[in-house]
Design a protein around this nucleic acid. Structure first.
Lengths: 175, 175
DNA sequence: ACTCGACATGTCAACAGTGGAAGGTAGAGT
DNA sequence: ACTCTACCTTCCACTGTTGACATGTCGAGT
């Protein structure tokens, strides 16, 4: 049920069309919660029928601009404050670690080093984002910076862990 | 498609029934890839039909013991070495960060501190696991330790980040 | 006048994941 | 003899997610 709340959150800032929302997902939220166009349009309909959104205006090309209602704002607030964040911890990368013993030591090490590389690459990409965005003092900038920093710390931790794990494997092999 | 590979990985160690697999998921893999009973049994059928598994023996109570085939082993190896790990990065906790501006400063800080608490609690629980399991030198123990260390680093990083973020919010408020 | 890229919405099939109900057997302990 | 627990499987309804396809309009530049 996070998609609906992501959309409510975006619309709480300002009204938008489905198309607008898609772009905002791609730019800002895609790293926390990706969404496809089919999902967005479908959810817009459901949210409107549920009274959490309303069609505020209609524009050219059949454009419908959605705005959040008071009920929607209440739901967003409720979600943010009252409900515990769902810990859906699914990690394919970590899953593989459990099966590393089915590889040769060389293959296993290659996998972990590859992981380290991927994490490092992602880290660099995030640093690039941080440099290219000009951050203001507005609310979205503050939040965006917090999320970016999370990403930076996460990728750094991942790289360090992968290198450490490769070392452990080597040690185990020597025994 | 990770579930099927998780099952292949477990069965590559030794044959097991659906029931056995469920328990192994709960104890070892649940933190990397949770699975429900309906999924496991369903997937066992599909994998058998695809020739990656076979029914090695039938026991009491309709128990069917599944064993991995050579084809299954090949698929597992292929997955581990050739396919890039899918980065399904969905984090409800991070998503919320983007909408913190819709809360009062007090509420937002409370949320982040709650996050820190949750991470710390999880960290402690993992440390407990590390103490209670007696680790051998066998392959599964080595892998398990790697995964556990990942969890420890992850939760530590999360807690630190949440505290840092709460501090940033305070700084922004003071401006 | 024309065309092309951006704007804009909708639908559909397929798969992955959740949660629970239903039905049944074997064996251990009292 | 009985009961209770652990064992074991199958089925189903629902939601969420993906990716692709279909359909069209507006406006800017040639």
């Amino acid at each position: 049920m996070s998609l609906r709340h992501a959309m409510l959150g975006l619309l709480a800032d300002q009204p938008a069309s489905g198309y607008d929302l898609m772009k905002r997902f791609e730019t800002s939220l895609s790293n926390a919660w990706p969404a496809t166009q089919s999902q967005v349009y479908g959810e817009l309909g459901k949210l409107t029928k549920a009274g959490l959104l309303e069609v505020a205006a209609e524009g050219p090309r059949g454009r419908k601009e959605y705005a959040i209602t008071d009920e929607g704002r209440a739901e967003l607030h409720h979600w943010l404050t009252e409900t515990p964040p769902g810990t859906v911890r699914r990690s394919e990368a970590l899953l593989r670690v459990f099966f590393l013993n089915h590889l040769t030591p060389v293959e296993a090490t290659a996998y972990l080093m590859g992981e380290a590389e991927r994490a490092a690459g992602r880290h660099k990409a995030l640093e690039e984002v941080g440099r290219n965005v000009d951050w203001g003092d507005d609310a979205l900038s503050v939040n965006g910076r917090l999320a970016l920093e999370y990403g930076l710390r996460f990728t750094a931790m991942r790289e360090e862990w992968a290198r450490w794990a490769a070392g452990e494997l080597r040690k185990a092999r020597e025994r």
